[in-house]
Design a binder for these strands. Structure first.
Lengths: 199, 199, 199, 199
DNA sequence: AATGAATGAGTCTTCATTCAT
DNA sequence: GATGAATGAAGACTCATTCAT
């Protein structure tokens, strides 16, 4: 049946399913989301899901991975040009907020519902955070070398940075207020760099 | 059987159930937790649950409220004696970490599983965060008046503060590392107050 | 505890329960009626029910019997004075309608819900009908002897009579219309006696 | 597996379920009937029931409607040829008895168990009776015009007629005796038309 | 490859009944 | 006698998964 160009990367239906999965899972959470609804949202039959994914579980994981990958490549794109640490933190945070905003639903899902993932997936998610942390720590260490930041425990500092990202992200995704994302990022990084205490 | 002081305000069984609920929900998440298991963990019959709570849902909510209330009173206790802002943030964070550590399971639950809560509970949880934020903002504003902190957008700053709390909390609850909680709190607040940028 | 005159026929509570049972069973039907509700309606504790009746089942049966007995004695009262058959049928029907009207709820119950009664009760109810039929047949036979009615198969005729009673009863109990019960009885018996066919 | 003519309008399984429902509901009553048993009787899985009916309730209603419809079309078939009123009543009653006999179980159900039907269904059943009554009244009025019956209150008379139908029906369905249905119908209508009173 | 009818394991919830006080 | 907290058997219903077409 498969019409269209042969060798066209990923099967159409698979991608449709993944995208439908983002919507439905985000809206309903893992448990309330029904495979049938995802199939319907993707415009395919229920059985078709099982051609592409061996289980609801697996579909969920694949969907998560796809989303994380999008996130990572978005972040990486931000980091090409070599700028100072302050500037870099600012554009990373802006990119983070931009992504979170655009994938609000997905973000809500990650921050609220899940847990079917028998450990394995959990570990994977934690790993993602870990990876991010490692990257931030490296960045901070380098900043200390260049004198852009003063000597602090990089592990503690990275937690502060990550907390900032997450906190602003949640507020954006859940909060009722509208923010100017770029200004928010700039302000927050400014606070982070200069500290709260008056000079 | 009835041990302990007679006439103890809240029904024994109800409290047993709430405590069993914390354990089981934290371990399994809302959906996988079986009412029967909670009953068993509390050492009562399945039907007894429905004497005290009209549904699994309600039991879950009651359990959350109990935990939040414990958290709030713990926090408030920390805030009796009048100290400077730096000191206050430090002891709040320390208390937060202490609580999170002691209620690790509960924390994991809140941060990972949930979503059955048809809006109502959601709103309630968001409200809790809101309330905390309001409190922090007030604290920061006062700090600006006393000159303890420099003039910054208090909303942005409060997000940084909350992010710090959450971030350290997660790391503590989920991370494999052991931390000296008091030192962690002190260091983090130090970073927060003085900022990353070298003087 | 039992205060009041000793030897006072039937225990107070028992009677209260039976009366509450009529209301609740009639309103809810056997299955939906909850023992607890009946107890509450009688103003006693749930456990008390089981002092007087060994089961919901038995309570139901006792309640039915009480009602039937009331019915029978009401009917019998009607039959003291010796009058002609036409007159007797008329006053029986009027008494029937009167009773049905006053015990509307009970009637609805009998005509709509029931069936928990594992045979035993069923047989009993059928027996009541039977007994009634036997009585009617005897009456009809006598009427033939006295020449008040013409020779017909008494069994068939009794079915017609009983059908009349039931049919008018249902209409009264369920129908939205208000009837003048005595006139209705008179008219119906008139039709029954004289037949539909014009002379 | 699928035997019988292909393309048969109503789904096979649905019909199997309806027929199994008649048997099981009639045997057990609404409440005691287990969905699982109906499924088993229909030779399908438990879940299948919920493909065709959204609830036990709905299955019950659908089953009732099917039966009533059968009854109505049976009755109507009886009424094609134009005959006198006496004759018509007789064949209607005979058809009624025939149907009741063949659907004895169903009849028992209707006359004994039910009441889950939150009003809606009740109204519908009452409506059926109403409709029948209206039809009978029209018939009687016409009979008065043609002089086949004498002038009587048609509403009262219709109650007598319906009572006759119901009464004989019950006797047939529940009673232990065997009847010659046609003779019974003829005799009863004869009584009805000529009345009990001797000429 | 695609489908959706069919399935039944898994759970919440109800409520008659028991029994310690 | 009276009570109501406690119990657990029983049953409706959901939904991931299979499989014949």
């Amino acid at each position: 049946m498969r019409e269209g160009l042969p060798g066209r990367g990923d099967s159409d239906k698979r991608m449709q399913l993944l995208e439908a999965a983002v919507d439905v899972f985000a809206l309903e959470g893992f448990h309330r989301a029904k495979v049938e609804d995802i199939a319907a949202a993707a415009g395919v039959g229920k059985g078709t899901v099982y051609h592409y994914f061996s289980s609801k579980q697996e579909l969920f994981q694949a969907m998560l991975e796809m989303s994380f990958n999008k996130y990572r490549s978005r972040m990486r794109a931000q980091l090409r040009d070599p700028v100072g640490l302050h500037q870099r933190l600012e554009s990373m945070l802006a990119a983070h907020l931009e992504f979170v905003w655009q994938h609000r639903k997905m973000a809500q899902l990650l921050l609220t519902d899940n847990r079917p993932l028998p450990e394995k997936m959990y570990r994977w998610m934690w790993q993602q955070r870990r990876r991010m942390m490692v990257y931030v720590i490296r960045m901070l260490k380098q900043g200390m070398l260049t004198g852009e930041i003063r000597p602090v425990d990089p592990r503690v500092a990275s937690l502060v940075v990550l907390g900032l990202f997450t906190s602003l992200g949640s507020q954006l995704a859940f909060g009722p207020e509208k923010f100017n994302r770029d200004k928010l990022a700039a302000d927050a990084v400014q606070v982070l760099m200069a500290g709260l205490a008056g000079k």
